[in-house]
Structure formats: structure tokens, C-alpha cells
Design a protein around this nucleic acid. Structure first.
Length: 285
DNA sequence: AATTCGGTCAACCGCTAGTTT
DNA sequence: AAAACTAGCGGTTGACCGAAT
């Protein structure tokens, strides 16, 4: 686009706005997968984009970040939104945290264009908006002190399944070797999809440190941005989190040290699921 | 066939809180 | 102490598209 007045030395770069082109998307994705995002305001410069950092951040978080679900909300998701909204109000980011693969923006949009009307209608026509509230009312305390521990623990949307011994074991022999410690665990513990596990805030009442967006943190985060390969089992949703022990589970990252600043990671979920992909850890950038 | 209407959703804007200089 | 900067949040906008007229 044009460049405003040339004479005045306003360093005001004219940023592109509006919808992202596929080329821009590719540049941004490529850059972040290789280098992590670091400081967002530097991203467009380093990635060669005529956008501001804020726009890049938004595009990554809401669209490009691996692991996002797109498309129709399931009934369970909708019910969850309704429940959470009745407790939290318009705290979209908090609500979205309990919907794996969904962004706050998406949840907000869905509420505004579908769910709000539905609630209003049922409120108008009725006495007590029964089913929605009843699912959560038992522990609906003040909005500030909502504790999801129990909910996360027993809820259905966490996709907790019981692993069959071999269905959980990937084809890769590497994996088998690496997960010997987990074999026993695999037999008796619930199998949790990596994706869901990462995004849950609590498991068995214990807080899990997982997040999808860390920047400039001094803590030793390993930000994993990976893509599924053939040996993936189940839904793979990569994310950013600390390796370590969380409650009854352990998350391992393999080969990370040999691939500092981007490279191939082997990632083991707590239940021994194996994933491999590109990654970059921000603490090395 | 052309125009208007209405809904959706990606993206922007302004603000706040936290951190760094 | 304060100014500058950053990430993140939620409200809002407007481009786009299908349906209705």
C-alpha cells in the first residue's frame, strides 16, 4: 500500500491489515515453527511480514497454531460453554481453556451468534433453565472462586479412555524402548489424549502446568510445536508445556537437547503415546 | 438478474496489568 | 518513580456470503 507522507520521518510503518493471505500464513507458520515466536513485535520483522506483532500473535493463536479444531461445535462443547458461561460470564479465555482446540475468539463468536439467543429464548419461555444450570449448580460458588478440579477429574469431555495394552503402543521400536518405564502404568491408568491432557488445568485435583502461549518466560519452558507423523496414535494436538511429573502422570520429551532452537523432537505423552515433529524451545531463543 | 438483508466470523481496537528500562 | 513496552483480554467492526425479495 501507499506510504503516507514521505517527507515526515514518522517511522510509522504502514502495516497490512485485513485478512491474511495464504502466503502470509505460510511465512508466519514457517517462522514460528522454526524459531518460536519470542517477542511478538519482532516476529513480523524477522519473518518478513508487513504486519504488526499484534496481528501476527492473533493469527497464530486463533488460526495457525497447531492443534486447533475448526468447524462445528459438538453438543458437549456447547453444553460446556453454557455451563461455564453461567458461572463465569464473558470470561472467554477462561472458558476456552476448558475446550481443547478452541480459541477464546471462537467461543465468543459462537456464544454471540448461537448460544446467547438460545439462552435468551429459554429464559424467556421458562421458569428455570433447568438442564444448563443443573450440571454445574452444585458447586457454583462465587465467580471468583470457581474450582474446576472435580469437574476436570470426572468429566467426559476430557476423553479419558482406558488403554488397551497394545493399542497404546506405537509402532516405533524406539518408542517401545523409551517407554518401558511406563508399561505398567499404561495397563492400569486411563489413557488420555495428549491434546486434552495438555489443556486441562487439573487432573485428579492437581494443577497441571500447561499452556499454549508462553513468551519471554524465564522459566524453563520447552515449547513444543510438533506435527504428527505416521506413528502417531489418536488425536495429536501439540502444545507448549513443561516436561515433568504432574500428579500421577509424566510427560517426557526426548531428543530435545540435541535439537536446540528447533528441530525434531520425540514427544511422549504421559501414557506413552509417541509423537514426533518439529519443535523449538523458547528458552533457547 | 440485481439488490437488499441478515448472520457469521476473522480481525481490529482500546484497555488493563505486568514487566522492563 | 515513571515512562515505555509487552502480552492478553473482551467488545466491536466490517468483509463476506447465502437467503430472501
Amino acid at each position: 500500500m501507499g506510504m503516507g507522507c514521505n517527507g515526515c520521518e514518522k517511522p510509522k510503518a504502514s502495516y497490512r491489515k485485513g485478512l491474511w493471505s495464504p502466503e502470509e500464513d505460510e511465512r508466519l507458520r514457517e517462522y514460528i515453527i522454526r524459531h518460536g515466536h519470542g517477542c511478538w513485535s519482532a516476529v513480523p520483522i524477522k519473518a518478513g511480514l508487513q504486519r504488526n506483532g499484534k496481528s501476527c500473535r492473533l493469527r497464530w493463536i486463533n488460526y495457525l497454531r497447531p492443534g486447533l479444531k475448526h468447524g462445528m461445535f459438538t453438543q458437549e462443547e456447547e453444553e460446556k460453554i453454557l455451563s461455564l458461561h453461567s458461572m463465569l460470564g464473558n470470561k472467554w479465555s477462561q472458558i476456552a481453556r476448558h475446550l481443547p482446540g478452541r480459541t477464546d475468539n471462537e467461543v465468543k463468536n459462537h456464544w454471540n451468534s448461537y448460544l446467547k439467543k438460545r439462552v435468551q429464548k429459554s429464559e424467556g419461555s421458562n421458569s428455570s433453565n433447568s438442564s444448563v444450570k443443573s450440571t454445574i449448580s452444585n458447586n457454583a460458588t462465587s465467580p471468583n472462586s470457581v474450582d474446576f478440579g472435580d469437574e476436570a477429574n470426572c468429566n467426559q469431555t476430557a476423553k479419558i479412555e482406558y488403554a488397551e495394552p497394545e493399542s497404546a503402543s506405537p509402532t516405533s521400536s524406539l518408542t517401545i524402548a523409551q517407554t518401558t518405564n511406563n508399561v505398567q502404568v499404561q495397563m492400569q491408568m486411563p489413557k488420555i489424549m495428549f491434546a486434552d491432557w495438555l489443556q486441562l488445568d487439573y487432573i485428579n485435583g492437581k494443577e497441571i502446568r500447561s499452556q499454549f502461549d508462553t513468551c519471554g518466560s524465564d522459566e524453563v519452558f520447552s515449547n513444543i510445536s510438533a506435527q504428527p507423523d505416521e506413528s502417531c496414535t489418536g488425536d495429536f494436538v501439540p502444545g507448549f508445556c513443561d516436561p515433568g511429573i504432574y500428579g500421577d502422570f509424566e510427560l517426557q520429551l526426548e531428543n530435545a537437547s540435541e535439537n536446540q532452537g528447533g528441530g525434531l523432537y520425540d514427544i511422549f505423552s504421559p501414557m506413552g503415546e509417541f509423537f514426533s515433529g518439529l519443535g523449538a524451545s523458547t528458552d533457547q531463543i
